[in-house]
């Protein structure tokens, strides 16, 4: 019984495996190139376990950002996780002692798998658990390998940081295509560029995030009336 669940969960996670191994590898190399090697990458991939944020975290570490900036940036970058949680409130009710782990491991990619219909005759509980566990393993493995290769200096890594830019750009384009109304995307762009010009490139994240939150809040209130 359990074997069938494990097999199915593994098959389902194959696309995420490819993605996490590659992106994790890129993250590991990038982090190591900024002299935050395996000793940082392993615990961060294990316990933060949020791809986009981990890339940003490297930059925050390099620029000696404050803890407050770390908290706020993580909040804004990962706020979407709140909503994955909200939509998994019901399905995850079948979980028992493994529930805290499965909630902790709810990343974008894992969400995209568990949000789908669970096949007939399969234990939902173990299906959710193994999908979460497999994805987590791929990410830790990919990023640790990247950190090792990065630290060994085998590849001339100058410019590797563009993988982060490219990652965000592709997500941005995917989001752009799936939506008719581009207010949020455009406002984010304008607010960030405006804040850079006003506050400089080292201190623009917090003002940008405040502007974005305010604009979306006001617009949300208005449209309801």
């Amino acid at each position: 019984m359990k074997r069938k669940v494990i097999q199915l969960a593994f098959q389902k996670t194959i696309p995420v495996m490819v993605g996490y191994l590659v992106l994790g590898f890129g993250y590991g190399i990038y982090s190591a190139s900024k002299s935050y090697g395996l000793g940082w990458v392993f615990p961060i991939s294990l316990f933060v376990y949020a791809g986009t944020m981990q890339y940003v975290l490297v930059d925050l570490l390099v620029s000696h950002a404050s803890v407050l900036e770390g908290l706020l940036t993580t909040f804004m970058v990962n706020a979407r996780h709140l909503f994955y949680g909200i939509s998994m409130l019901e399905p995850y009710q079948v979980l028992k002692k493994e529930k805290p782990y499965v909630i902790f491991a709810l990343t974008d990619e894992t969400y995209s798998l568990v949000v789908q219909e669970v096949p007939e005759g399969i234990s939902k509980r173990w299906y959710y658990f193994f999908i979460s566990l497999f994805d987590h393993c791929y990410w830790v493995l990919g990023s640790c390998l990247g950190a090792l290769v990065g630290s060994a200096n085998i590849i001339p890594s100058k410019g590797i940081e563009f993988s982060m830019t490219a990652l965000f750009l592709t997500v941005f384009l995917d989001q752009w295509k799936e939506k008719q109304d581009h207010f949020s995307a455009l406002f984010g762009l304008v607010a960030s560029i405006g804040s850079i010009l006003l506050f400089g490139k080292d201190h623009f994240l917090i003002p940008t995030m405040i502007l974005i939150a305010l604009a979306l809040y006001i617009r949300g209130k208005r449209e309801r009336i």
Partner: peptide
């Protein structure tokens, strides 16, 4: 709910600029 739907779009734009 609304913020949750809209926030990702604006934040991703911010992250591209950040990079």
């Amino acid at each position: 709910q609304r913020l949750g739907r809209e926030l990702p779009y604006a934040i991703m734009a911010m992250l591209v600029v950040y990079c």
